[in-house]
Design a protein around this nucleic acid. Structure first.
Lengths: 224, 224
DNA sequence: ACCTGAACACCGTTCAAGT
DNA sequence: ACCTGAACACCGTTCAAGT
């Protein structure tokens, strides 16, 4: 065959097929040879479009991150914005649970991941959060979103009644969890979101009081 | 050589060498051949002690989970217990960050992981939490512990000043994060712990009020 | 029972060759 | 520029052979 007149492959077609493979058959099914077969080409062809398999995976991951809504950041009040953003983030990842372990490795040089990090950090700082707090809040939201999107907690229990009942007195119902995985992870996510926002709003109020106190003491010392 | 009088390998020796390899050179360095070489044997020898590489990894993971303290659960008041347990859990995982992605796949059939899940669930239920809440709280704590132990957030930013400054207005300092990775993850963990416990205590207080209200309305209806 | 070398079916990646 | 088949150095795992 050799070089065809119209290229057989494109960035988008490869990323789409790779995502389909990971969603359908898991991360292990994504080998260069398997993916190439899916695309009707030979294995090494992929290396004309991506330098390494890792670069390909980065592109797949960044396509998913690109689905996260960022428009509420810097527009709505920060607690509302953070809540809506986290839900959109979680929804984008939960649609591709097999990909989450790869996502967990940080933004690296992926453009959409960097745009996301920039938007949330910027919105928090603009709302008056100190930069140190803004960094920690961004990290904390990541923990919540990734953990609940992994589907790991409930899915990690084996569907085998005998295993739990004998030895672990409180886990008698644990084998049922596999079915309820999605509901448990969503419930834990919403519980975490409520708690974290409650805690952050209390902290934010204290920030405001401290700033007011600092201002009045400045006035006072300026006067004396 | 063939079979020696004293076995060359043991469960413990294999697990120890595997953990050392993962800690020192990352998860990818753990291949059956590489591990065998480290132990002075040939690759297939490992299959006389573990059925598959996954079973070996499970044993490594469970050894780490076995380091988590559980003694405070069911003994101290639940908010104190939850806080101390989460810190011990995080410390155990943070000592082996390369292993955390494997841990994230749920308890499966690992005895120490099941013992841990049983202990925290039981302590919460005994403290008066409904089982549904206890499940969600356990999952939520896992998100927090795993996320912060991965060291993924800050470590995921590349140490390359030019990359951020040009395109992402709020990330001008992001290349410094690699150095501060541990501090950021610990700060985000503690922030999350404070917020979540604050939120849970408020929720717990409401539970108590509802129970009291239900009791008094029962008395009332019994009277009429 | 426990370790060996040979072998199987896979990997990611490189490269000279084809158009 | 884009695709190919052949090849390299790796995998996890199986198995007959040795003591």
């Amino acid at each position: 065959m050799a070089r065809p007149r119209n290229p057989l492959l494109s960035h988008e077609r490869i990323v789409g097929a790779a995502l389909g493979l990971v969603d359908g058959e898991g991360l292990d099914a994504l080998s260069t040879r398997r993916l190439a077969a899916e695309l009707g080409v030979s294995g090494p062809s992929l290396y004309h479009h991506f330098a390494t398999k890792d670069a390909l995976l980065d592109a797949v991951v960044d396509a998913v991150v690109g689905e996260v809504r960022l428009d509420m950041l810097g527009r709505d009040p920060w607690p509302d914005a953070l809540r809506a953003w986290a839900r959109s983030y979680r929804a984008a990842l939960a649609a591709h649970p097999n990909l989450v372990p790869v996502l967990a490795h940080g933004p690296g040089r992926r453009p959409n991941a960097l745009r996301l990090a920039d938007a949330v950090f910027g919105a928090l700082v603009d709302a008056g959060w100190p930069t140190g707090d803004a960094t920690r809040i961004g990290a904390l939201m990541r923990y919540l979103v990734f953990g609940s999107a992994l589907g790991s907690f409930a899915g990690g229990f084996v569907d085998d009644e005998g295993l739990y009942a004998e030895q672990y007195p409180h886990l008698g119902q644990a084998h049922l969890l596999a079915d309820r995985q999605r509901a448990v992870d969503e419930g834990a996510f919403e519980l975490g979101l409520d708690s974290i926002l409650l805690g952050l709003e209390a902290r934010y109020a204290r920030l405001g009081e401290q700033a007011a106190a600092a201002t009045s003491s400045n006035r006072y010392s300026a006067r004396s």
